[in-house]
């Protein structure tokens, strides 16, 4: 509840600002965003309102995909204190898996294959690149994560070439719905709903099951949890599995809307989702979701206002400001280092 309220509290000013811009500075609207109605006066204002709602819808949909990826970052950081730089690339790889799976299987099977392969890849990366460095300095494991990201990007450039690949259309997902003046494809509406459902399931999993309890214990205190006989390796694997699975789902939703995949299309979304996780308070699942939606909406609105060059920069500015004002994020807990 609190998160919901603060969520609206956060986006309200942004929406207002955008509303102001769109209403009073019509020149600043990018041509593609809205041009049909160029008459001034009441009609203009009304249509602008629709435009804003339209963008908000797009933003919420993008935010849903971001939220799903951000959860992966938050879970892994919570447990290993590691920014999994490769997470964005796992998400990108999932895009390619889907392209190839759909080329030879019907779509329900293709989705399952994609999700399974992505999950296995996530677990595999952990076993291969992070596990051997469990006791190494923090910097080594971070470099390893960057290395994996570099490897995945180069590998997919090699295998799939850097030319954007068209993302296949799934049936139903692209069907256009009209709600009054607004129009949206099914995926736009599905994304936030699916995100919320998955998050609720995840929350139940984390709070009610034994594995979930172990996950929370490990993220509170790695060493003690180990001493208490928790099988750390299993918990870490489960964490990576969940993170990658959600990234796989996010990837299907995201790329259906974007229509093409390149080897680098995971980098920026990845970093943004990490920012979303930090924004909501790293280690906190609802926080990551709020952060994901927030960044998705603001980014969409910024693009709509014609500041597309700054939409990426904004995310990082948000990060730096957040870290300075409240380093623990919106819902994070304080952590003091003992001497």
């Amino acid at each position: 509840m609190v998160s919901l309220v603060s969520f609206f509290f956060l986006i309200a000013p942004v929406v207002c600002t955008c509303y102001y811009h769109v209403t009073f500075n019509p020149i600043e609207i990018e041509p593609f965003s809205f041009t049909e109605n160029t008459t001034f006066g009441y009609g203009e204002l009304l249509m602008s309102m629709t435009t804003i709602l339209q963008h908000c819808l797009t933003g919420i949909s993008l935010g849903g995909a971001y939220a799903l990826i951000a959860i992966g970052y938050t879970l892994v950081y919570g447990i290993l204190r590691l920014i999994n730089f490769a997470h964005g690339d796992i998400f990108m790889m999932a895009g390619y898996f889907m392209i190839f799976a759909l080329a030879s299987f019907p779509w329900p099977v293709a989705i399952i294959i994609t999700l399974v392969v992505t999950t296995v890849m996530g677990i595999g990366i952990e076993k291969f690149a992070y596990k051997p460095l469990r006791n190494a300095p923090r910097m080594s494991i971070m470099i390893s994560a960057i290395g994996v990201s570099y490897l995945l990007q180069n590998l997919s450039t090699y295998i799939f070439t850097a030319i954007p690949r068209g993302y296949p259309e799934l049936p139903y997902l692209k069907r256009i719905f009209r709600i009054g003046e607004l129009s949206a494809s099914f995926v736009t509406i599905l994304t936030p709903i699916l995100t919320i459902i998955l998050v609720i399931i995840l929350m139940i999993l984390v709070n009610k099951t034994k594995t979930g309890m172990a996950m929370r214990a490990v993220s509170k205190d790695f060493e003690t949890a180990k001493l208490m006989g928790i099988n750390i390796d299993r918990i870490v694997s489960v964490t990576f599995a969940i993170g990658s699975l959600l990234a796989g789902v996010g990837s299907i939703l995201y790329f259906t809307d974007r229509m093409s995949v390149t080897p680098f299309s995971g980098t920026l979304p990845g970093l943004k989702c990490f920012v979303a996780a930090v924004f909501g308070g790293i280690g906190n699942i609802p926080g990551a979701v709020v952060g994901g939606f927030f960044i998705g909406i603001v980014e969409t609105l910024l693009i709509a206002l014609g500041y597309s060059t700054f939409s990426d920069a904004f995310t990082f500015l948000l990060l730096i400001i957040m870290l300075l004002i409240k380093p623990t994020g919106l819902f994070g807990e304080k952590n003091v280092e003992k001497v």
């Binding site: 204190r81 590691l82 920014i83 923090r138 971070m142 970093l271 990490f274 920012v275 930090v278 990426d312 920069a313 995310t315 990082f316 500015l317 990060l319 730096i320 870290l323 380093p327």
Partner: peptide, 12 residues
Amino acid sequence: DYLAIATLGLSE
């Protein structure tokens, strides 16, 4: 790691 990501963001 926060420093890492903040400086990366800075260069972006």
